[in-house]
Amino acid sequence: MKKVLLLLVAALLLFAGYQWLNPTPEKFIRHRLIDLAKAASFQSSEAPLAKLANAQMISSFCSQNVEISVDLPGRQTGTVAGRDEVMQGLLASRRAVSSLSVDFYDITVQLSTDRESATANLTVRARTSGDRDDYIQELRFTFQKIEGDWFIVRVQTIKTLTLLLPLP
């Protein structure tokens, strides 16, 4: 009985170890997004080298031709394309605000049928120093498998409440 139990525990440990070493694409993407949120957050006391390292880490999650489209009428509208532009934008944002806290909620990952691309929907909650209210926005990340690794190829804003066009 004791041997059976030991074998069972060993089998469970092996399975858990295998799962940890070979995560499913959904798990991998989820972890990548959590790492992204951590790297996007910073404190006023963050050292310049750490700022650069975190910005580099975020841009390394993106593909060379990544596209970030922001469509928030009345607030911000525009597109950032390419890893270099993303890097510049990240460094500029770190200069513009003294601290930023980013959290991702309700992450759902959906793999395509060929398992070569995936979309992740989530809600981001961002808080900057000095702002009274948190900033909340739904986002959709599109990932693509490039040379065995998952990279962000597109980020879009999703409108929770849509504004209708005025009647003609």
């Binding site: 992450i107 809600t123 929770t160």
Partner: peptide, 13 residues
């Protein structure tokens, strides 16, 4: 209450 990507963060309107 209006959900965003899920119900962790919702709008109250």
């Amino acid at each position: 209450s209006i959900r965003t990507a899920g119900i962790s963060l919702m709008y109250l309107k």
